[in-house]
Design a binder for these strands. Sequence first.
DNA 1: CTTACAACGTGAACATAATTCAAAAAAAGA
DNA 2: TCTTTTTTTGAATTATGTTCACGTTGTAAG
Lengths: 242, 242
Amino acid sequence: MGTRERRQRELGHREQLILETARELIRSEGLLNLQMARIAEKCEYAVGTLYQHFASKEDLLVELTRQDTVEHASMIGRLADWKATPRERIFGLAAADMLFVRRHPDHFRLAQYVFCEVVWNAASAERRQAVLDAQAPIAEFAADIVRDAVTAGQLDLRGMPPEQAVIGLWSLVIGMHNLVHAEGVMHPFLVPDPYRLMCRHIQALLNGQGWQPQVDPLDDAALDALIQKIFTEVFDEHCSPA
Amino acid sequence: MGTRERRQRELGHREQLILETARELIRSEGLLNLQMARIAEKCEYAVGTLYQHFASKEDLLVELTRQDTVEHASMIGRLADWKATPRERIFGLAAADMLFVRRHPDHFRLAQYVFCEVVWNAASAERRQAVLDAQAPIAEFAADIVRDAVTAGQLDLRGMPPEQAVIGLWSLVIGMHNLVHAEGVMHPFLVPDPYRLMCRHIQALLNGQGWQPQVDPLDDAALDALIQKIFTEVFDEHCSPA
DNA sequence: CTTACAACGTGAACATAATTCAAAAAAAGA
DNA sequence: TCTTTTTTTGAATTATGTTCACGTTGTAAG
């Protein structure tokens, strides 16, 4: 009988329901106030049921992170088939990131927390590996895009491997999200329009890394327009970057 | 009687002892396994005594972060009186950071954890403010150094305020520490010599931001030598950057 | 239809760790 | 030395993640 399959499907749905509920609670009450009991209550299940799907609270959070990461990777993956100039494609990486962070404002905090835990607790090795597996394509896509720019003769890395160039771009983006996302904590660093600033710095880093020709930087308006174009063309998101 | 003062002093010492003990435990057993009871045991005090100095565990961690940050700021502050070229002084910022992270390998993880907590829990407003106050001079020093480079005609930011240029540098450094420090988690990003790579990217960002003249980049050996020189001259640390 | 069996769901009980607080001890002052 | 104040203590309390013995539900065989 197909009954068995239906039940499996239902279980999958429930797992998703639990995760979504957890997400909502994190958003409304904060990561640190997330309680298993509250999740269960909101789902109208018993606490024990949660533990049928996740070995622990940490495990649940890791899975949440993994799903975010998969979505992030798939967003970046969309750039793979996008026909555009090398520069546009590199800014596409930044745009994907902006959009992802906008859609998942809690992701950075969650990921950081999870990484702290996961690194120290050898507990959930499989789920940790799953997160790593979800993350790998992001780095690969990014490296491909940089490599294409080099191949096209637009970027002269002077011997630096594209993967290492990606680390620079990636650090810049991650660091910036950190500063921006620390909501009022790192006040000396708050600026009115952090994403435009991010674009400027990315452009500066590219130029410094050997962008050819070195003398046609995009101005703020052009950067905004580019990001918006990417949002629309690649991600079907009709909103401004700011 | 001066007894009162002596006791105050003793209390201060004890507070420091508690903090140092906590630091040791974090280093040996990890941030997430830190227990108030273990701290008390190792200090040979009763648990309750800890609560005479810190309103909560979170409070203790925030104070730890604050002290780290003060030291960080004071390291960067040493650059203020250091006579050197603008470029050397900018790399001085990076060198100070490397050295600080080397001396406090747990700081980044701790700070990130603390910021997560502190942002959501309005609890310990004074200590949070203390961390912010400790952090402010870091941004100021850095902006001063960038400003000097502009004044000296070495850097042409084309209208970008120096504080915003600092954000770029700072993001790059923070992001890089994040990637490097995630010990095996973000494996696609692991490189053999992350600090040299950091220097390269800083140089690229500077060049892209308008460093004059644009055509005298330091090679790896020169970067290493520069960092080592800064370690020795400014921080009396006789070790190599790598 | 009944029964045996397995899978699933339940929530009270348990374990761990932060925090409190009443009582004991120590110090200060008279 | 006695009283008062301050400090220290650790057992009790609280909060929360986790387990598990039991009841329930669905499934398949007789």
